[in-house]
Amino acid sequence: MKSKFVFFSIIILLLFSNKILADDKALAGADFEYGQHLSGECVTCHNSTGLGQGIPKITGMKTAVFIKKILAYKTKEKDNAVMQMVADRLGEVEINSLALYLSKTK
């Protein structure tokens, strides 16, 4: 019984650490402080209190969701002139840093 528990614990830990590694890899070059600085550009429109109408809340967004959305604007799959322009000058490090910061901000 005990060995079974240890076995499953190890499996879960391995899965979890793989997830962490995968996230770290996805967020190459991410810097929390840089993300916070860059987010100043976002909160001019995206209400930091989440009370905005017409413009969605982005704080607390999961990193994968944020990255997917920004890339869709960057490739112009998603249609919004302001967001396409914002995404246009964000490189990988900027996007990852923003994703990291926003995901950890309420």
Binding site: V43, T44, C45, H46, N47, S48, T49, L51, G52, Q53, G54, I55, N80, V82
Partner: peptide, 20 residues
Amino acid sequence: KATYEESIGWYSGITSDMFS
């Protein structure tokens, strides 16, 4: 219409950014 609604969101955003 979406552009107008976006402007309302922006007003809420920038005034919150300035004052809260």
